[in-house]
Measured scan of single mutants.
Amino acid sequence: MGFKLLSKLLVYLTASIMAIASPLAFSVDSSGEYPTVSEIPVGEVRLYQIADGVWSHIATQSFDGAVYPSNGLIVRDGDELLLIDTAWGAKNTAALLAEIEKQIGLPVTRAVSTHFHDDRVGGVDVLRAAGVATYASPSTRRLAEVEGNEIPTHSLEGLSSSGDAVRFGPVELFYPGAAHSTDNLIVYVPSASVLYGGCAIYELSRTSAGNVADADLAEWPTSIERIQQHYPEAQFVIPGHGLPGGLDLLKHTTNVVKAHTNRSVVE
């Protein structure tokens, strides 16, 4: 069995187990497998329904001669939608809004960016022009300005110390501490036991640490421990890039980060 097929099978099995364990909360999309990078042309966006009122959005972007996937989250909030992270750029984010209108038909009224990198804030200006209120932590807003990236308009308070959590509509926002970046936030959907790890969490097929220019490698494993301790009931975990899975993604990420750190020390 090929690795790609095995990865998709694991996603399907995880979703099936969740649907059985929580039949009222989960209505997993039966329309197909989780979209992969090879299936999404740059400039297009796919939506994948995880649970009743919960979707991931998947886009792709060219970077350094390669094409990478990027995940975000959409959560229903009454007759409105909360968006977590842009679709990595203005063109993708405009396509995301169009796809949401086509498939869901509810307005996106608020959006949260989970850290300051372009795959999370690139497209904020498109959201703002569409009347979406954009939010991020003060740290993310400051770092985005320093980096020359787009800056969300509103500040999220109460997320300055490791372990801080605040309720934001249908989700809980959690600051686990520094990891992929010093400002990275985690998003949890309690009604569906869905954990969105953003770039602080890796997919299972990833074996290298990737972009760690703004990471705190020493603190990252401790931050992941905080996530595990705060959300032990999480059933569906979405990484910032690639295929979702279960809580095993947290341990896998820790292993990859520690291996990278150990290699760096040896070198």
Rank of each mutant, 00 (worst) to 15 (best):
Arg128Met: 06
Leu5Thr: 09
Gly131Lys: 12
Asn255His: 09
Ala111Pro: 03
Gly148Ser: 11
Asp125Glu: 09
Ala133Gln: 11
Phe63Asn: 08
Thr14Pro: 08
Trp220Cys: 03
Lys251Pro: 13
Gln103Cys: 10
Ser264Met: 12
Gly177Thr: 00
Glu80Asp: 13
Gln49Tyr: 08
Arg263His: 05
Thr36Pro: 09
Ser56Lys: 08
Asp183Trp: 00
Thr60Cys: 10
Asp183Gln: 00
Ser193Asn: 06
Ser56Phe: 04
Phe174Asp: 02
Met18Phe: 04
Thr14Asp: 11
Val42Trp: 11
Gly242Asp: 03
Gly246Ile: 05
Val171Ser: 05
Gly32Ala: 06
Ser7Trp: 09
Trp220Gly: 01
Asp79Asn: 05
Val212His: 10
Val256Lys: 14
Thr86Trp: 01
Thr254Ser: 11
Val54Met: 12
Asp77Val: 08
Arg128Trp: 11
Val212Ala: 08
Gly32Trp: 15
Pro23Gln: 08
Leu127Lys: 02
Thr261Ser: 06
Ser56Arg: 08
Ser27Pro: 05
Ile227Gln: 02
Ser31Ala: 06
Gly245Arg: 10
Ser161Gly: 14
Val265Ile: 05
Thr222His: 13
Glu80Tyr: 15
Gly245Asp: 08
Pro239Met: 02
Ala133Thr: 12
Ser264Pro: 13
Ala111Leu: 15
Gln49Cys: 06
Phe236Asp: 14
Tyr175Asp: 02
Gly197Ala: 08
Val28His: 15
Ser139Lys: 06
Pro152Phe: 04
Ser155Trp: 06
Asp52Arg: 06
Asn255Lys: 08
Ser264Tyr: 09
Gln228Phe: 15
Glu233Cys: 10
Val45Met: 12
Leu82Ala: 14
Asn184Met: 02
Thr261His: 12
Ile151His: 03
Ala111Asn: 15
His180Ala: 00
Ser31Met: 15
Val67Tyr: 07
Thr254Asp: 13
Ile84Met: 07
Ala19Met: 08
Ala19Pro: 13
Pro152Lys: 03
Gly131Ile: 04
Asn262Pro: 13
Ala218Asp: 10
Ser193Arg: 09
Phe116Ala: 15
Gly245Cys: 02
His241Ile: 00
Ala234Trp: 02
Phe174Gly: 02
Ser31Lys: 10
Tyr202Lys: 07
Ala98Ile: 04
Arg110Met: 04
Lys91Asp: 14
Asp216Ser: 12
Asn92Arg: 13
Asp52Val: 07
Ile224Tyr: 00
Ile201Trp: 02
Phe168Pro: 03
Lys258Tyr: 04
Thr60His: 07
Asp248Phe: 05
Tyr196Asp: 01
Gly2Glu: 13
Ala259Trp: 09
Glu150Thr: 13
Asn255Met: 07
Ala94Ser: 13
Val112Ala: 06
Leu13Met: 06
Ala19Asp: 15
Glu147Leu: 08
Tyr135Leu: 07
Asn71Leu: 01
Asp216Leu: 09
Thr253Cys: 00
Gly158His: 15
Leu6Tyr: 15
Val11Tyr: 15
Leu82Gly: 02
Ser16Ile: 04
Phe3Pro: 03
Thr60Phe: 06
Glu233Phe: 12
Glu101Ile: 15
Phe236Arg: 07
Leu143Ala: 11
Ser27Glu: 06
Val45Cys: 03
Gly89Phe: 03
Leu96Asn: 00
Val108Ser: 06
Ser38Gly: 10
His57Phe: 12
Leu47Gly: 01
Gly123Phe: 00
Ile20Cys: 07
Leu159Pro: 05
Asp52Ser: 05
Ala192Phe: 11
Thr60Lys: 11
Leu5Met: 05
Thr261Glu: 10
Asn255Gln: 10
Ser191Asp: 14
Ala21Gly: 09
Gly169Ala: 11
Pro107Cys: 03
Tyr231Pro: 00
Phe168Trp: 14
Glu99Phe: 15
Tyr196Ser: 03
Arg206Thr: 11
Val75Lys: 01
Leu96Asp: 01
Gly163Ala: 12
Ile84Pro: 01
Ile224Met: 07
Leu173Gly: 01
Tyr231Ser: 03
Asp164His: 10
Ile58Thr: 06
Leu195Gly: 00
Val132Cys: 04
Ser162Arg: 12
Lys102His: 04
Thr140Trp: 01
Ser70Glu: 02
His252Ser: 13
Ala15Trp: 06
Val194Ala: 12
Gly123Pro: 02
Pro244Asp: 03
Pro69Ser: 05
Ser205Glu: 12
Arg46Asn: 04
Val124Ile: 04
Ile40Trp: 08
Leu173Ala: 04
Ala66Pro: 06
Cys199Leu: 01
Ala259Gln: 08
Trp220Val: 01
Leu250Gly: 01
Asp248Met: 09
Val121Thr: 11
Glu172Asp: 11
His241Val: 00
Ala165Asn: 15
Val126Glu: 09
Lys4Gln: 04
Thr182Gly: 10
Pro170Val: 15
Asp216Pro: 10
Leu82Gln: 12
Tyr188Pro: 01
Arg110Pro: 03
Ala215Val: 12
His241Cys: 00
Asn184Thr: 02
Tyr48Ser: 06
Met18Thr: 04
Arg128His: 11
Gly65Leu: 07
Tyr202Asn: 08
Leu96Gly: 03
Thr182Trp: 09
Lys91Trp: 12
Ser38Asp: 08
Asp214Ser: 08
Thr207Ile: 15
Glu150Pro: 10
Gly32Lys: 10
Tyr68Met: 09
Ala87His: 00
Leu6Pro: 06
Gly158Cys: 04
Ala165Gln: 14
